[in-house]
Design a protein around this nucleic acid. Structure first.
Lengths: 127, 127
DNA sequence: CCTAATCCCTCCAGTAACTAGAAGGTTAAG
DNA sequence: CTTAACCTTCTAGTTACTGGAGGGATTAGG
């Protein structure tokens, strides 16, 4: 798989895929004879994992920890479990926050009459 | 309310609160005699709205649109509704993505035995 | 009233994580 | 065999903060 196919599959720009290998977040991919980067499904799954983590506010450094664990032959199952559980709690907190952002906007949508008048009940709240 | 109280209430660093007024994302706050910025509850609610939007990957420019609407005296209710509905769909897509990230890590946690052995079923998937 | 701690201010420089563009080599379709 | 769509490296720019210097204002204790 060339870089553009991997980038499409992962949902990341080509430039970003290169960048992640440059900074050592993922392993440097192998190269074709012409020097083209070649990717496999496991690499793509890692990129998807990073993309989703990044989209929800985890930093690059915070992505390194779980990714490092997956690759570390000496880690114990207990260590993997501890770090993943901590991350899971952070994600659940994000889910609650996202839900309240959702509810706030849903309220705006349902209270607006959607007509041509400029008044809208939400203005009293946010204006 | 001084800037540090507003910053605590909004869940944003003081520097970031100043920055948002500097770039015109929120209105420049009024000042005390000594030149201190003073904030009210409506300003704090706007800052919370921005914080949550930013945490979930909306850019500063994408925050301007709904915030602008709230303040625009000439907008129609239909326009408010259209933009808020579009944003709501984006948020629902983010909720689905966050759920996938959650499930992926939850799988990691439940399949790990949590003992001192270094093997873990998730490695086959991501390693 | 004085002093120390804790605010607050502005300004400038630095960082994280990309992202755009130039210059040029490679591959696949017609 | 050309030409369009790939790919490469490199450097420089952007977004959204973030840290620190230097200095004024406010508050709590003695």
């Amino acid at each position: 798989m060339n870089i553009s196919a991997a980038s499409k599959a992962a949902g990341l720009p080509v430039k970003t895929v290169r960048y992640y290998a440059d900074i050592g977040l993922v392993q440097a991919p192998s190269r074709s004879d012409a020097g083209y980067r070649t990717y496999d499904d496991a690499s793509v799954r890692k990129l998807v994992f990073i993309r989703r983590s990044r989209e929800f506010g985890f930093t690059i450094e915070e992505c390194r920890e779980p990714l490092g664990l997956y690759q570390d032959q000496d880690r114990t199952s207990a260590e993997v479990k501890r770090i993943a559980s901590k991350r899971l709690e952070e994600i659940e907190e994000k889910q609650r926050e996202l839900q309240s952002l959702h509810d706030e906007l849903a309220h705006l949508v349902t209270t607006c009459r959607g007509d041509h008048m400029p008044d809208c009940p939400i203005i009293d709240y946010l204006g």
